[in-house]
Amino acid sequence: MYTQAMDTAPKEERAAIRNADEVVAEQAFEAALDNEGFIEAKDWMPDHYRKTLVRQISQHAHSEIVGMLPEGNWITRAPTLKRKAILLAKVQDEAGHGLYLYAAGETLGTSRDQMLDALHTGKAKYSSIFNYPTLTWADVGVVGWLVDGAAIMNQIPLCRCSYAPYARAMVRVCREESFHQRQGYDALLTMMQKGTPAQRAMVQDATNRWWWPSLMMFGPPDDQSPNTAQSMRWGIKRITNDELRQKFVNAAVEQARILGVTLPDPDLKWNEARGEHDFGAIDWSEFWQVVNGDGPCNKERLAERVDAWNDGEWVREAALAHARKTAARAQKQAA
């Protein structure tokens, strides 16, 4: 999910092994992967492993902070004080998740500033789902239900990722994540079961607009994802795109039925032989259009992040300047 564009990134060559120590270290690395063990920050790792993880972890982190924007859009318009508080807390969690993930990324030898720079200059991507607009309050609920629901499915296997700092960050994230899906679903259930016809129409409209992009979150079909085998070996992907997507559909069909909304797919039907739900063809041209920067909100989302960073430059500088002044004064006094 966070590696959507990685499948098309230039293939990186494995550096040639240089000396005997590295051979031993590499054997230890491979043995750790074989035994479902963990790789820690200071352990030897192939350069390609390190680079792949930096890219995945940082894109995951970027997804969290960009993901704050579509929902943050509704905090000042939340319809009750309880919903306002819940949404504030949820968006705050997303900031926290971004932070844990940037911290995990920093253990691999990059810095927060470097990772953010890659985002701001368009070199790094974030999950394409956040390039869609939240047009109504019901969108907030549907994002919780479908988008967080998809994220949870993707994140639970990552808790056993081979790179331990990432795995530990994911454990923390998963603990907080189920609240996110529940609050969204709860908001929708309230509107569908106790709300007015206008509210129900709003929920159905939001579902119609978010369903297909949510399916696309899981990335291209397996036969178009060449890096899957490598990612599986390294434990940074444990279940394939198609398998996760199917799991998601199976769960969502039942959830939609309970809500009383129709999923906008006339080809969606239970397949007794497979024991799963068949679903219609995804328009992958839309997916690639969005991933490549021409979705509904790509430019706005990035501009907001860049502006927030640039507008905050003087603040960060001031905090550092003050810290230095304070340290200098303390030294002078001690002298």
Binding site: G96, A103, E106
Partner: peptide, 21 residues
């Protein structure tokens, strides 16, 4: 985990915000 802060007082406050919510 870790976080960025300009000084130790801020680090302590932010740790409370980020890791003990």
């Amino acid at each position: 985990g870790s976080l960025h802060a300009a000084d130790s007082k801020m680090a302590l406050q932010l740790a409370r915000e980020v890791y003990t919510r």
